[in-house]
Simulated assay, not measured.
Amino acid sequence: MMSVEERRLVEELRAGKDEAFDLLMEVYGRRLYNFARRMCRHTEDARDVMQETLLALVRSLHAYRGEGSLQAWLFQIAANACRKMRRRGKFEPDVELSLEAFFPGDRPHDVKIEIPDVMSNPEDRLLRAELNARLEEAIAKLPTKYRSVLLLRDVEHLSTEETARALGLTPQAVKTRLHRARLFLREHLAPYLAAHRDTLAPDSQE
Rank of each mutant, 00 (worst) to 15 (best):
R147V: 02
R134H: 04
L193H: 10
R147F: 03
I77T: 07
A46T: 05
M119N: 07
R37M: 13
P171Q: 11
R8W: 02
S3Y: 00
E100R: 05
K141G: 14
A46E: 04
E67Q: 08
A79N: 15
L151P: 08
S60M: 06
Q205I: 14
R180M: 06
I77C: 00
E206I: 14
Q172S: 14
V4N: 13
F184K: 15
P191H: 09
S148Y: 02
R8F: 11
E52S: 05
D106V: 09
R165G: 09
L200W: 11
A194G: 05
M119F: 14
M1R: 12
R87K: 11
F21H: 02
P202A: 02
E130G: 01
A56N: 10
A164L: 09
F91K: 03
A63V: 05
A81H: 04
E12I: 00
V49K: 01
L135G: 02
L150F: 15
F75T: 10
L150W: 14
Y64R: 00
A79C: 13
L32I: 06
E156M: 06
E44N: 14
E52W: 09
K90L: 15
R182E: 14
P191Q: 06
R186N: 01
L9Q: 04
V49C: 10
T170L: 13
E44F: 15
L135P: 02
V49Q: 04
T199K: 07
A15C: 12
A195D: 05
R47E: 11
A79Y: 08
